[in-house]
């Protein structure tokens, strides 16, 4: 079974449709991570939803591809590939649809195992690192691996560094890790190869599982630095059921260039 190249304008192939067994297809836009590519993925997801193709079970956006799950007894690979290729491609004006979440993060070394080492390696103080990390408008590329676990980008080049050589067997729930140009928030205690630079008291996983509004691909995220004392206070509120996550007031729309 070979991939199907689909030209977007009759000349240049824009995405490839790859078979993922008989229960899914992967619509792949290139092989690198960029906001532009991720936006194409999200636009196609919206287009598929609007088209209401029967036999599609769900779609799941990842960095550069859209996984489209299907019931193979309802729609064949060929029919689904054709239907997806026929979906009108429109480009969202970036900034118009996305929500921005504000997530409190404590960058104190008491809960951020690697912050001092990371700051030293990129040549800033821990406080400077925190203020740079918190000043970035992060974009939710995808959720995956564990329920409610977001992959966020893009970290400024000057504070980025590779994964840890030796992954940790365990980091605490809420750990904020960085590697390359990505930031990840671990909703549960889990093994981790990233550099842990902070911890949030926000229960990302619980919100997703309770069906409450929560982070979705395409959303924006800003981190709000908090003190260790505030972290402990908010963690207490979170365990009593508070959501901790805040939505920012919608930003004025920005035209894509």
């Amino acid at each position: 079974m070979s991939a199907i190249d689909v030209p977007s304008n009759g000349v240049t192939p824009d995405f490839r449709i790859l078979p993922v067994g008989d229960t899914a297809i992967s619509v792949e836009f290139g092989d690198s991570i960029s906001r532009e590519t991720n936006q194409k993925v999200l636009d196609l997801a919206a287009g598929i939803e609007a088209a209401g193709i029967s036999g599609i079970v769900e779609t799941a956006a990842t960095f550069r591809s859209l996984l489209v799950m299907r019931d193979p007894t309802q729609i064949s690979f060929e029919a689904l590939a054709r239907a997806i290729s026929a979906i009108p491609r429109k480009t969202t004006l970036r900034g118009t649809a996305a929500r921005t979440w504000r997530i409190p993060v404590c960058y104190d070394r008491a809960v951020a195992e690697d912050i001092e080492e990371v700051a030293a390696r990129v040549g800033v103080s821990s406080d400077e690192f925190a203020s740079i990390h918190a000043s970035v408008a992060h974009h939710v590329y995808m959720l995956g691996f564990l329920p409610g676990q977001p992959y966020l980008g893009d970290l400024p080049e000057r504070i980025s560094l590779p994964r840890r050589l030796a992954p940790r067997a365990k980091v605490a729930a809420g750990s904020v890790g960085i590697a390359m140009r990505m930031t990840c928030v671990f909703p549960r205690e889990s093994p981790c190869g990233l550099n842990v630079v902070g911890r949030t008291p926000a229960p990302l996983s619980a919100r997703a599982l309770d069906g409450a509004p929560s982070l979705a691909p395409g959303d924006g995220v800003r981190f709000r630095p908090i003190t260790l004392g505030e972290f402990e206070r908010l963690a207490g509120e979170a365990s009593a059921g508070a959501s901790i996550l805040e939505l920012e007031a919608p930003a004025p729309s920005v035209q894509a260039t």
Binding site: V20, T23, I33, T62, F63, S65, L66, L67, M69, G144
Partner: peptide
């Protein structure tokens, strides 16, 4: 680049 997986992959 990480992408989506289904059971059986």
């Amino acid at each position: 680049v990480s992408d989506g997986m289904v059971p059986g992959s």
